[in-house]
Computed example of a mutant assay.
Amino acid sequence: MSAAATTLDHVGICAREAGPLHARFAALGFTLTPLARQSGPGGPLATGNRCAFFRHGYLELLAILDPALPDNGLGALLDRHEGMRILALGMDDAEANLRRLRGAGLPIPGIAPLARPCDDPQGRPARFERLPLPDAPEGRVQLVRHLTPELLWQERWLDHPNRVLALEEAFILSGAPMESAARLSVLAGRPLEPRPAGGVTLRLDHGAVSVLDAAGEFPDLPRPTLGGCAFRTGDGTAAIRALAPHGTALPDGSWLLHEAGAALVFRP
């Protein structure tokens, strides 16, 4: 067990209206799980998601389904803007990471449980443990431990028409990149290193998170924010180019899309 982040677990793209968000990503060739309502210790929440699971990591599409219920802070995130508002790093040991983060001076009250249905034939919910970084200006940045990973990474959800195989990198956009990088390093319990294209990168056992400054990539997106992510494809990006011909070719052969307030990079 490790008292540090281990993987890039998932990113969450958030909107107030679920239907258009889900329809857009289905049209981009993501195989989405059925709609699932979330719940917390106090009962049902206002939020629900559909997800695209990959061989490594996943993409969450989160929206408010019932504004009359508690929204677990999503409404406050959306008041600023829609887009990629969630970044979750995987962890093995919630208790050890809680002790580490409290030792670093972060006022984390405890481990936050979360559950949601997952289309399991036996009706079992997917269950998680969360350690959110308090007051992160970039969005909801957190550590997550999966208690029931076998219920989520089902083989039937892992093949996508756009040929995405893995969530490979997440991008934090910041006008004060060293401050954002320091918060990320404390949360992850790992050092960061210079990124050849500019900024700094947190490298994990699977995946990475990069912090970019205002003069770097994606200059049209707001800062500070979780600006977007990169996916690894299995076909050299041929499928996503056919599905979304409005994208932009990047010098390394990647295909860039701006969708739902987020930058999406599909890598060959």
Score class of each variant (00 low, 15 high):
residue 204 L to H: 04
residue 207 G to I: 04
residue 130 R to M: 14
residue 79 D to I: 01
residue 126 A to I: 04
residue 196 P to K: 02
residue 202 L to S: 01
residue 183 R to T: 02
residue 244 A to T: 06
residue 165 L to Q: 12
residue 114 L to R: 00
residue 256 L to F: 03
residue 204 L to F: 08
residue 182 A to S: 14
residue 69 L to Y: 08
residue 180 S to P: 06
residue 48 G to E: 04
residue 55 R to C: 06
residue 12 G to P: 11
residue 168 E to P: 00
residue 23 A to Y: 03
residue 205 D to Q: 13
residue 76 A to M: 02
residue 182 A to P: 00
residue 166 A to Y: 01
residue 247 G to Y: 02
residue 1 M to Y: 04
residue 186 V to M: 05
residue 189 G to Q: 05
residue 30 F to R: 01
residue 94 A to W: 02
residue 86 I to R: 01
residue 163 R to W: 00
residue 229 C to S: 10
residue 203 R to H: 12
residue 265 V to T: 11
residue 58 Y to G: 03
residue 83 G to T: 07
residue 116 R to D: 08
residue 99 R to V: 12
residue 218 F to P: 00
residue 42 G to L: 11
residue 177 P to S: 10
residue 215 A to N: 10
residue 192 L to I: 07
residue 260 A to S: 13
residue 122 Q to D: 15
residue 4 A to N: 03
residue 177 P to V: 11
residue 188 A to T: 05
residue 222 P to R: 05
residue 224 P to M: 12
residue 219 P to C: 13
residue 224 P to V: 13
residue 1 M to H: 09
residue 119 D to W: 11
residue 252 D to H: 13
residue 101 L to A: 10
residue 121 P to T: 12
residue 217 E to K: 09
residue 81 H to R: 07
residue 243 L to F: 07
residue 74 L to D: 04
residue 119 D to R: 14
residue 266 F to Q: 03
residue 159 D to R: 15
residue 171 F to T: 06
residue 61 L to N: 04
residue 192 L to N: 02
residue 20 P to I: 04
residue 141 V to F: 03
residue 115 A to Q: 14
residue 59 L to Y: 01
residue 13 I to N: 03
residue 192 L to Q: 01
residue 211 V to Q: 02
residue 198 G to S: 09
residue 213 D to M: 07
residue 109 P to A: 13
residue 11 V to Y: 02
residue 27 A to E: 14
residue 212 L to S: 09
residue 95 E to T: 11
residue 60 E to Y: 10
residue 77 L to N: 02
residue 259 E to S: 07
residue 166 A to E: 09
residue 251 P to R: 10
residue 232 R to Y: 09
residue 111 I to M: 03
residue 193 E to A: 15
residue 153 W to M: 05
residue 114 L to G: 15
residue 97 N to D: 12
residue 165 L to I: 06
residue 45 L to G: 12
residue 58 Y to F: 14
residue 120 D to V: 13
residue 191 P to A: 12
residue 69 L to E: 07
residue 60 E to K: 11
residue 189 G to P: 04
residue 215 A to M: 03
residue 126 A to G: 15
residue 69 L to Q: 14
residue 33 T to V: 13
residue 29 G to W: 07
residue 92 D to Y: 03
residue 231 F to E: 02
residue 267 R to M: 11
residue 252 D to L: 13
residue 53 F to H: 12
residue 125 P to D: 14
residue 36 A to Q: 05
residue 202 L to G: 01
residue 112 A to Q: 13
residue 26 A to F: 05
residue 85 R to N: 14
residue 177 P to H: 07
residue 161 P to S: 03
residue 119 D to A: 15
residue 84 M to A: 10
residue 80 R to Y: 00
residue 100 R to A: 14
residue 263 A to C: 09
residue 170 A to E: 00
residue 49 N to K: 08
residue 232 R to A: 15
residue 29 G to D: 08
residue 204 L to W: 02
residue 248 T to V: 15
residue 233 T to I: 10
residue 168 E to F: 00
residue 19 G to T: 14
residue 220 D to Y: 01
residue 117 P to C: 06
residue 178 M to I: 04
residue 215 A to D: 12
residue 109 P to S: 09
residue 171 F to L: 09
residue 29 G to Y: 09
residue 155 E to G: 11
residue 81 H to L: 01
residue 56 H to R: 13
residue 190 R to T: 10
residue 101 L to F: 04
residue 210 S to A: 15
residue 63 A to M: 06
residue 145 R to K: 13
residue 4 A to W: 01
residue 230 A to V: 12
residue 108 I to M: 03
residue 254 S to A: 15
residue 121 P to K: 11
residue 134 P to A: 14
residue 14 C to W: 01
residue 194 P to S: 13
residue 255 W to L: 08
residue 95 E to H: 10
